[in-house]
Amino acid sequence: MSRSQIYPVYKVKLKLAIQDPDMPSTRYHTILFVQTNAQGPRSGIKHHVTGDIVTGMHYESAEYDDPETDENFFSKELIGHTRALNYPKNWNDTLKSIPAPPKQKAFNKVTMKTEPVKSWDPVTFYGPGEPRLPLIKCTEWIEDQAISTLINAGLIHGDMSV
């Protein structure tokens, strides 16, 4: 297969304006970037989940300029390559099949803060010191679900001879 028929796939991290106090470490908005244009300004399509964990998130793909020109750019890591054939339709179909992170927080009238929810019916919050389930956001969706699903579907390959 000739080089012109494959696109590089990157995991890109973008700085956040505000960190989530319920997440222990520095967080980034994590996306997959498929570089479809290598000539001139590098551009392509970003694949990610957007929204928040108070209302729920949803999958989105959109045209995207070179991530390194984004004012919030933090890092870009090559994770493999994808075939140009049927791209982006095959990616969108696959990624839409992965549930996006749902609502996981709500406003607690007792503490007057938005907090992780233990259960939804009825809405129950965690007590002080009670072990909590980890929150799932864009980074976990990309790193723990999207990448492995795309690899298993044969849509991301680790070498140039895809």
Results as ranks from 00 to 15, higher is better:
W141S: 04
E68Q: 13
I6G: 02
I6H: 09
D93S: 13
T124K: 15
F125P: 04
E77N: 10
T30V: 12
V9N: 02
T36F: 03
G40E: 09
P122R: 06
H29D: 01
Y126E: 01
T94M: 10
L95D: 07
S25G: 13
R83A: 05
T94S: 13
I31C: 09
L78S: 00
Q19D: 06
I151P: 03
N37G: 15
D22A: 01
T124G: 05
H81V: 11
S61G: 08
V54P: 06
K89A: 15
T69C: 08
I98L: 07
K96R: 12
F73P: 10
D121E: 10
K15D: 02
T26W: 08
P102R: 12
L155I: 03
D52W: 10
I151D: 04
A38F: 03
T139N: 12
I18A: 03
K46M: 11
D93N: 12
V110H: 08
G40P: 15
T82L: 04
P99H: 09
E63H: 11
I151L: 10
L150T: 03
E143C: 11
T50Y: 04
V123D: 08
K113P: 05
Y7E: 11
D65R: 12
Q19P: 14
N86E: 12
Y7I: 02
A106D: 15
S119K: 15
Q145C: 08
T36D: 08
H81C: 03
E115A: 01
P41H: 00
T139W: 05
N152K: 13
D65Q: 10
S43E: 08
M23Y: 14
S148P: 02
D20N: 11
T114M: 05
P88R: 00
T94K: 10
T149R: 05
H47N: 07
Y10L: 05
